[in-house]
Amino acid sequence: MASKTLVVPQASQALDMLKFEVAQELGIQLSPDGYNGNLTTYHAGKIGGSITRRLVQIAEQSLGGSSQNWR
């Protein structure tokens, strides 16, 4: 079961900013009030997948540039 509890609660604002940034890059309009009930599953998946890719890239850079060190 997924949990929305953040390990670092201060990261909430940064994650929201990232969500809006990624959506804008993809040309997807998000509601500033937080309600996105009109968002299709396809578009929500595109945003989530792009955020995940970006977070993995950030983690790889902070670990020394590549995930190949872990394989």
Score class of each variant (00 low, 15 high):
3 S>Y: 06
47 I>K: 00
9 P>R: 00
40 T>W: 06
54 R>S: 03
19 K>D: 02
1 M>S: 11
56 V>D: 05
66 S>L: 06
53 R>A: 13
32 P>H: 10
53 R>L: 11
47 I>Q: 00
41 T>V: 14
48 G>P: 00
39 L>N: 02
15 L>M: 10
54 R>Q: 09
12 S>C: 05
48 G>L: 07
59 A>I: 10
58 I>A: 15
12 S>L: 14
12 S>K: 14
23 A>E: 00
52 T>H: 08
17 M>L: 13
35 Y>L: 08
67 S>M: 08
69 N>L: 12
63 L>M: 15
65 G>P: 04
12 S>R: 13
57 Q>R: 12
22 V>G: 00
42 Y>I: 11
2 A>W: 11
17 M>R: 14
41 T>L: 13
71 R>G: 08
65 G>R: 09
39 L>G: 01
13 Q>T: 13
8 V>T: 08
31 S>M: 05
48 G>Q: 09
69 N>W: 11
23 A>G: 00
13 Q>C: 07
5 T>G: 02
27 G>K: 03
40 T>V: 07
2 A>T: 13
70 W>D: 12
43 H>K: 14
63 L>C: 12
36 N>V: 07
44 A>F: 06
42 Y>R: 13
66 S>F: 05
15 L>T: 06
4 K>T: 06
35 Y>K: 14
52 T>N: 06
35 Y>P: 00
39 L>A: 03
18 L>A: 04
27 G>R: 03
2 A>H: 14
37 G>A: 11
66 S>H: 10
37 G>E: 12
54 R>E: 07
50 S>C: 05
51 I>V: 15
21 E>Q: 14
53 R>W: 06
42 Y>K: 11
